[in-house]
């Protein structure tokens, strides 16, 4: 697949140290366009829709804010909403997003026993935007990866 110049520039900005120290690709050796294509396939197989997932993540983030910085139980989930100073640009250059980190995990598992990416989702305003607008879940090994199977398991 031939990359557009916009995609190529976005992928360069996903590397560690450009927008964030960790970058967006984790330990994934796949190219970002391949990550997107394979996650789109996984979404279809799991019956997930990018807009619906993004809406649900936004809804949970709002509920998490009611904990006033402390974790809060919402149904079967434990949500913690934390905020940091500043804004992050989207690698595709289509907006700036408030820096925050929302964690979502099963309420019946102690927070300290949850492993990121296995039974805990971590996301930000930028994660939701990239999911909705670019179908980008981030690379495997990125702490902020929105693993499709985990999205299905926790959110629906």
């Amino acid at each position: 697949m031939k990359q557009s110049p916009a995609d190529r520039q976005a992928f360069e900005r996903m590397m560690p140290g450009v927008i964030t120290a960790q970058g967006f690709l984790g330990k994934d050796v796949r190219s970002p366009d391949r990550i997107i294509a394979e996650d789109e396939l996984l979404f279809r197989e799991l019956g997930l829709d990018f807009d619906t997932v993004a809406d649900r993540l936004e809804e949970l983030a709002r509920k998490g804010e009611e904990g006033l910085g402390e974790p809060i139980t919402v149904g079967k989930l434990l949500i913690q909403s934390g905020e940091a100073r500043g804004k992050l640009p989207c690698p595709w250059g289509d907006g700036f997003f408030h820096k925050n980190a929302v964690s979502v995990s099963p309420a019946d598992i102690p927070l300290e026993a949850c492993a990121e990416g296995e039974d805990m989702l971590i996301y930000s305003e930028l994660s939701i935007h990239m999911l909705r607008a670019h179908h980008f879940c981030q690379g495997r090994g990125s702490p902020f990866r929105l693993e499709p199977a985990l999205l299905k398991q926790l959110l629906f």
């Binding site: 140290g17 450009v18 927008i19 964030t20 120290a21 100073r85 500043g86 804004k87 640009p89 820096k99």
Partner: peptide, 25 residues
């Protein structure tokens, strides 16, 4: 707070010399 990547907005200072227009960042 961001190591100079222009993502925290904390390092504001007033520049009296003309150093060109503000960057998109």
């Amino acid at each position: 707070a961001c190591g100079g990547r222009g993502t925290c907005g904390a390092c504001k200072c007033k520049v009296l010399t003309d150093v060109g227009p503000h960057l998109p960042t």
